[in-house]
């Protein structure tokens, strides 16, 4: 290594350049791999709450096993779009789809007769404020698992709980206190518990709505590392206000503005060579 630093060959200069270039974006990293199939296809999606339009004409292809980030100023529809994928908007009064479709692996999510509980199992969600149930750490994870796997044995359940906590990088910290209340954990730990809880039911897609908004930078960093690891196995969609975070971890980025999807593309392109002027202004920090 020290030889390479010292020598003047063209090859060594190339390595040096790699070493010193700041790893701001990982967007270019996986281009060499084959492009992945779309896991979620959104076609002209429109959403309204009563007479108020929340989304209009949103179309995008969310690739599987990649991290897609939704960015944009407050109130522009990012969370609404996210919540359409697992139909969490259904309970809100006045909500209706005013047009378009959302396809999960080719199937229309809003078709008649869709089993919504099965959909929500396949599309997991983590919220901005950690919301563990006021129960033990073990029961937090076991509750939904027991719901979906009837008559599961205790030892199998133990295994699932351990695996979920390992996947969320939380196992080592809580392995000796699984019966303790989840509310006794720190904010960052609670959020990782919520991720473990969502992973335990074996989803295909994991959605996170500003998961690090209420966390300190160190916890945020740990969750970002976790998401990078998880993206090898899960399709991840994250809504974030933190542009640097989007640059750090996402492969694809969608920029929302006032209910419209202004631009959607590779993260590198959206951040450094935006096709639309509004996108360029937003990522520059001119507003938002």
């Amino acid at each position: 290594m020290s030889d390479t630093f010292a020598s003047d060959s063209a090859e060594s200069l190339g390595i040096l350049e790699t070493l010193v270039r700041p790893a701001v974006s990982r967007a270019g990293e996986r281009e060499a791999e084959s492009t992945s199939a779309p896991m979620v296809t959104v076609n002209g999606l429109g959403v309204a709450y009563g007479s108020k339009t929340a989304l209009e004409g949103v179309s995008m292809l969310i690739p599987e096993r990649r991290i897609t980030a939704f960015i944009g100023p407050s109130g522009c529809g990012k969370s609404t779009a996210l919540r359409c994928f697992n139909r969490m908007n259904d309970g809100i009064s006045g909500f209706r789809i005013s047009g378009g479709t959302v396809l999960l692996d080719g199937q229309d999510v809003y078709a008649r007769g869709v089993n919504v509980t099965a959909l929500r199992r396949a599309v997991g969600m983590v919220f901005q404020q950690p919301n563990p149930f006021p129960m033990s750490i073990y029961d937090n994870i076991a509750l939904a698992v027991r719901e979906h796997e009837r008559g599961i044995s205790r030892s199998t359940l133990d295994g699932i709980v351990e695996q979920a906590l390992r996947q969320a990088n939380l196992w080592d910290e809580v392995r000796d206190c699984l019966t303790q209340s989840a509310l006794s954990l720190s904010g960052g730990q609670q959020q990782r518990l919520c991720i473990a809880r969502a992973l335990a039911v074996r989803p295909t897609v994991l959605m996170l709505d500003e998961p690090c908004a209420s966390l300190d930078p160190i916890s945020t960093g740990r969750i970002e590392e976790l998401l990078l690891e998880l993206s090898a196995d899960y399709t991840i969609v994250i809504v974030t206000h933190n542009l640097a975070q989007a640059q750090r971890i996402s492969d694809k980025v969608g920029f929302f503005l006032m209910g419209r999807l202004v631009e959607f593309g590779d993260a590198l392109q959206v951040f450094e060579a935006s096709a639309r002027p509004e996108t360029a202004e937003y990522v520059r920090g001119a507003f938002g």
Partner: peptide, 17 residues
């Protein structure tokens, strides 16, 4: 808190459960 209800619904737990 509503967040608890949302958390359970998002995990695919039916409303009455």
């Amino acid at each position: 808190p509503d967040e608890l209800r949302e958390a359970a619904l998002a995990l695919g737990v039916p409303r009455w459960k």
